[in-house]
Amino acid sequence: MTDSLKEGLRKAAMFCAYQERTQQEVRDRLKEWGIFGDDAEEVIAELIQQNYLNEERFAKAFAGGKFRVKGWGKRKIKQHLQQRGISGYNLDQAMKDIAPDDYRETLTDLLDKKRRSLHDDNPLVVKQKLVRYALSKGYESELIFAVLGREE
């Protein structure tokens, strides 16, 4: 390994140690630093070997964070993970980490909070706004209607 490659590995390790990253994020950063092709892949392989880079760990951290902090639904989380190049097994593992009871409870809380902010006398308009809001957060329509139907 050349000195510039060792320096790239050191910088990339610090980049990954700061927060979980995907291989694509590291590849893009290496490109910014002038490390391309086989050299970049060698650095990435070394980061994986040293456990600085782990896409399953990234997917679980991302999904858990977006669910707990931002209240995102599984559809939105899945879409964002796929945009970051996460698929298959890692994507499935991240989704499994979201407990069904917590998921439903979070949706219920989001809808309750949103309902308090709506000022409309027509219950159909309120329900329509709640459904649109929950869909925009990435929740599945069947679950949204199940939660809203239970409250009526």
Results as ranks from 00 to 15, higher is better:
residue 88 G to M: 07
residue 88 G to K: 11
residue 89 Y to N: 15
residue 89 Y to K: 15
residue 89 Y to V: 14
residue 90 N to R: 05
residue 91 L to T: 13
residue 91 L to R: 05
residue 92 D to M: 12
residue 93 Q to A: 14
residue 93 Q to T: 11
residue 94 A to P: 01
residue 95 M to F: 11
residue 95 M to A: 09
residue 96 K to T: 11
residue 96 K to W: 07
residue 97 D to W: 09
residue 97 D to K: 13
residue 99 A to L: 11
residue 100 P to D: 13
residue 100 P to N: 10
residue 101 D to H: 05
residue 102 D to N: 14
residue 102 D to C: 08
residue 102 D to T: 06
residue 103 Y to A: 04
residue 104 R to Q: 15
residue 104 R to L: 09
residue 105 E to Y: 06
residue 105 E to H: 06
residue 105 E to A: 14
residue 105 E to C: 01
residue 106 T to M: 13
residue 106 T to A: 14
residue 107 L to N: 05
residue 107 L to V: 04
residue 107 L to Q: 06
residue 109 D to G: 05
residue 109 D to E: 09
residue 110 L to E: 01
residue 112 D to R: 13
residue 112 D to T: 07
residue 112 D to Y: 10
residue 112 D to S: 08
residue 112 D to L: 09
residue 113 K to A: 03
residue 115 R to K: 14
residue 115 R to G: 00
residue 116 R to E: 08
residue 116 R to F: 03
residue 117 S to F: 00
residue 117 S to P: 00
residue 118 L to F: 01
residue 118 L to N: 02
residue 119 H to N: 02
residue 119 H to C: 01
residue 120 D to K: 07
residue 120 D to F: 04
residue 120 D to W: 03
residue 120 D to A: 11
residue 122 N to V: 11
residue 122 N to Y: 05
residue 124 L to A: 09
residue 125 V to H: 06
residue 127 K to C: 11
residue 128 Q to F: 03
residue 131 V to F: 01
residue 131 V to A: 09
